[in-house]
Design a protein around this nucleic acid. Structure first.
Lengths: 188, 188
DNA sequence: TGAGCATACGGAGAGGGCCTCCGGTTGACA
DNA sequence: TGTCAACCGGAGGCCCTCTCCGTATGCTCA
């Protein structure tokens, strides 16, 4: 979908208002926030919301990827790292951050992954796993990450961690224990 | 609450019918199943359900601990293990199994842990962590588990894993990768 | 410019879930 | 058997999701 130039002007305006309001509500209320309320606050009928975003996941995905916070652009931060391990861990931190954008997002993602792989969220995950595989290969080459580890595994551990974080947003103690176990788990 | 002998006979009967139906619905539909539907199928008014179980968590907790599937009784399986590590891992497997009883249970638990520690679910978790600490100490004594690891950490990784499992019930591939990373992460 | 049409809008309404409240019922005990 | 505390049922208010269709409006082309 996205704001294409073949959209009518009013449609584009509504689309953008919806995304803007959705981002706000998703950030403060999590992925289960009321879609009705979003439409209302965006000054748009519910029908309009559902026409633009057939289901909740489509809206979440669009809100997530609006503006420039996509992972791809963040790839720059990674390049400056010296070792492959450092690059991998910076990348995983980015992914974790991305997956924790909204409270409950990991649940939506896991469900999307389970039921068919055609949804936008599922496709995004597949892309993340592929990128991870690439970075991982370098780290394994240099011997800092154990062989046998797969990008899929690291994605899953990162998703799990994002889930834990988004459930307990207060504890800023950075889940030291869990993170340490995981790092020790894939490093050589 | 529980089925006490100070309850009136009709109250006890309803309580038990509710638990029975709740177990069925929770098992097949997960923790978000309709409470109205449970009351209906149990042949009881909704008011009765809410009087016995003030909120969803109370019902989940009661359903979880009805009959003998509590973790405590499963402690027997653990004793036969020879090494402390083996005992620990069997215990964690039990906990993981318990935490995956219903789809979405880990979410309920995480929320209970976050908001006050007085809920039955939160109390149960605290108990599990304490038991884990005990078993963990033995394993650390014998040198098979790294020092610095805490019962809380192992509980959290187990909860995360249970979440992943309960989200993707199909994949019986046993999340080989994730499990292997975690085991490697806490072992010496 | 303005007529005509494809595109898009809005919101009522059906369906369902949550939870409360209170008039009515019933088990227990004297 | 009578009395009352304990317990029941379910109507009803509120909120949410999602569909459907009559209405409105941006766009295009003559």
């Amino acid at each position: 979908m996205s704001t294409s130039r073949t959209m009518r002007a009013d449609a584009r305006k509504n689309y953008e208002a919806l995304i803007k309001t959705a981002r706000k509500h998703l950030s403060s209320q999590g992925v289960t926030t009321s879609l009705d309320a979003i439409a209302r606050e965006a000054g748009v009928g519910v029908g309009t919301l559902y026409r633009h975003f057939p289901d909740r996941d489509h809206l979440i995905f669009a809100a997530l990827n609006a503006q420039g916070e996509e992972l791809r652009t963040a790839a720059d931060l990674i390049r400056s790292a010296e070792t492959g391990l450092e690059r991998l861990e910076r990348w995983l931190a980015q992914v974790q951050n991305y997956l924790s954008s909204y409270q409950g997002l990991p649940d939506s993602i896991a469900q999307a992954l389970e039921s068919g792989d055609k949804t936008p969220l599922a496709i995004t995950c597949q892309e993340i796993i592929e990128i991870t595989d690439g970075i991982l290969a370098d780290a394994q080459q240099e011997g800092t990450v154990r062989p046998g580890i797969k990008g899929q595994d690291l994605f899953e551990t990162t998703l799990m961690t994002a889930w834990l974080i988004s459930q307990e947003p207060e504890r800023q103690r950075g889940l030291g224990g869990v993170g340490e176990i995981l790092r020790h788990g894939y490093r050589s």
